[in-house]
Write a protein that binds this DNA or RNA. Sequence first.
DNA 1: TGACTTAGCGTATTTTTTACGCTAAGTTTG
DNA 2: CAAACTTAGCGTAAAAAATACGCTAAGTCA
Lengths: 259, 259
Amino acid sequence: MWIRRNFPSATHLMRLKLNPHISVDCVVFGFDRGSLKVLLVERLFSDGHTGEAFSDLKLPGSLVYDNENLDHAACRVLRELTGLDHIYLEQLSVFDSPERTSSATDRNWLQHETGIEIGRIISVAYFALIRFEKMMELLSRMNQKTHWTDARHPGRLPFDHNMIVRKGLEHLQTRMRIEPIAMELLPRKFTLRQLQEVYEVLLGREMDNRNFRKKLHRNGYFVPLNEKEKDVAHKPARLYTFDKTRYERNKKDSVIFSI
Amino acid sequence: MWIRRNFPSATHLMRLKLNPHISVDCVVFGFDRGSLKVLLVERLFSDGHTGEAFSDLKLPGSLVYDNENLDHAACRVLRELTGLDHIYLEQLSVFDSPERTSSATDRNWLQHETGIEIGRIISVAYFALIRFEKMMELLSRMNQKTHWTDARHPGRLPFDHNMIVRKGLEHLQTRMRIEPIAMELLPRKFTLRQLQEVYEVLLGREMDNRNFRKKLHRNGYFVPLNEKEKDVAHKPARLYTFDKTRYERNKKDSVIFSI
DNA sequence: TGACTTAGCGTATTTTTTACGCTAAGTTTG
DNA sequence: CAAACTTAGCGTAAAAAATACGCTAAGTCA
């Protein structure tokens, strides 16, 4: 009845016993052509009567191994899913309503997926940002199982995943005003215009291009490269990188990063 | 061997089954006479051989009931402990290292306290601020079980409670730059000088008194009362309250509350 | 070649931040 | 009771940051 997804090649370092009470779910954001996307994965199952296959979209997530800490579990989920590492990742929030796993469909799917009797599951949500190159890389070797969906209209998701996505969005918006994380959505080398677009889309307001670049130059964390963008239908702009190290050094004073 | 503390009068709304995998711990801050305090509670036990009684300090916390959500559990812990309600409370972070309950002393204490076989326990830390009046109220009917300790030097605490306190401190410092929570540590009616002192102590730097009050007046969330402070050895200052409602209304634009 | 788009630098104005002077209203001390 | 002292509370001037907007250069496209 239920199609069982290949169980992930487990890390050899720990015993394989899953803790049936705790899971992690990842909200992974990406930015493509002016819009914010969230990463969803397919959930496969088939109808009990007809045997017909169905699929669904959900946040990438997993139960946690007994000896595994949560940060590790979140990394693991992303590595197994996307094959990629070294992306911006932080704990978002705990989702713990006792009713979050109460839908019959969800319970059944979980039970068949994990082979474990499911009671209450507390999920720790993780917040991740993925660079444009990696996003594209993922799309190209797309195994039909991952989808980049409009983060603001992800459709109806199972469990409390809609809540988690919404919380992730809010987090992104407040966080990017305080710490320089917006560039984690761009390629490592980006133009100032690209960065401005991210700000405009995520904050939902237009910004003056000339003032925007003035600010960036003043704070001095953006280092100009001797490279220009290519294949654009207009004057190619200079590429920049963000100097994280320099930012961390000067952080003490300001603490709040504003544009 | 182990003194078993009276188990809290449980809420009647839910079955009393404790979930042995998830706990909450609360970092409650208070501000008194120029220094930041954290609330600790006594942990009682006695030596296995001599039967002599010992005590310890730890963060207030509890396992979570099976049908209870975490916010509720955190409120419950504080209500049972302090008898007080309506204090500033928010989720801080999850502490989940598999080794966090590995100390033999801690495991034994837990087992005797709860009567439950203890395995891995994931703890969700909550961050709370308590107003000066309530802090004093608590001190007066102090049942010898609660202590206000210097938040920056709480001594050695069991489990990973030192980590949790440190995280709470960091959270307080970043949070107060972004949202107007510093006044949650003061009486509902406070002088501008008192507020300034909180800022100075928590941020660790002095501020110009004249500029400080200028800012407060400009942002318009501080409403002057027709009352003055009493029993001070100098010119009594006017009392103010913080208008949360007005702040919430105007929040949309600025989002970041700075002094 | 001319129309068009975006990059990229500049200037003037307004707003906010910072530094500091000063008086008034109380308390404490001799 | 007066002089010394402390904090409240208002003000001004200069520096810094934010905002609004003009303009040219460098490229593409038709």
